[in-house]
């Protein structure tokens, strides 16, 4: 554990708190992509199956349970809550997320480091996480004025990925046997997807106006 990894995890946690706060406090999920949230739920389930048979640290296990719980809470609110579900902009959330799931599964079957059930599912979760933000990014472009909490949620998610890259650089330069090419390549692609959003987020923040993605 290093400071970049810890900061990354805490930023990830904070992003989920911000999103849940927006949904619970404003009783609205306007501008939030249910497809992205469902993809994250799939990512966490397939990656954290190892909760059942492998233990790394109490920190890891607690975080895994928290991430799973928050992902399912968000999906529950967006799909089933009697008030919140009516605020979901279905017609703006049209990305075909099933293609992302299928593509990630095919890639995980082709490129993995060990051809076992759990390893392939874990690899699938890495590939799917890399692209899971796409429905949300497309939806932001279609939504007019993006509210602060939604913008901050996506910004924090992008920060979390950036901090993970710093964590990998740190680990690579300090640990003797540290090599995880699948995670690195997927993570760099995932972070690159935020570049456009970051540009407009910082530009609007600098000019002190509401976030709009052209």
């Amino acid at each position: 554990m290093n400071v970049f990894r810890l900061a990354g995890d805490l930023t990830h946690l904070l992003s989920l708190v911000v999103l849940l706060l927006k949904i619970v406090a404003t009783k609205s999920c306007r501008g939030v992509s249910a497809k992205t949230q469902e993809l994250y739920a799939i990512v966490f389930v397939t990656r954290y199956l190892d909760l059942l048979f492998s233990f790394v640290s109490l920190y890891n296990s607690v975080m895994k349970v928290v991430f799973l719980g928050s992902a399912f809470s968000i999906v529950y609110f967006m799909r089933y809550h009697k008030v919140v579900r009516h605020t979901y902009d279905r017609e703006l959330d049209t990305f075909r997320s099933s293609f992302l799931v299928a593509g990630s599964m095919v890639l995980a079957l082709l490129i993995n480091s060990k051809y076992t059930f759990f390893e392939v599912l874990w690899t699938f979760s890495i590939y799917l996480e890399a692209v899971a933000i796409l429905p949300q990014l497309v939806m932001l472009q279609r939504t007019g004025n993006i509210d602060n909490l939604t913008g901050n949620y996506v910004f924090l998610l992008g920060m979390y990925r950036g901090l993970y890259i710093l964590n990998w650089i740190y680990r690579y330069s300090t640990e003797r046997r540290y090599w995880q090419m699948i995670v690195w390549v997927s993570g760099i692609i995932q972070t690159a997807l935020y570049a456009d959003f970051f540009y407009y987020y910082l530009k609007c923040w600098n000019e002190n106006r509401t976030l709009v993605i052209p």
Binding site: R5, D9, H12, D50, S54, V56, N60, M63, K64, F67, S113, K114, E119, W122, Y164, N167, W179, Q180, M181, I182, V183
Partner: peptide, 10 residues
């Protein structure tokens, strides 16, 4: 390298 990766990150 085809060594299975340690899954020690989240």
């Amino acid at each position: 390298k085809d060594v299975p990766q340690d899954h020690d990150e989240l």
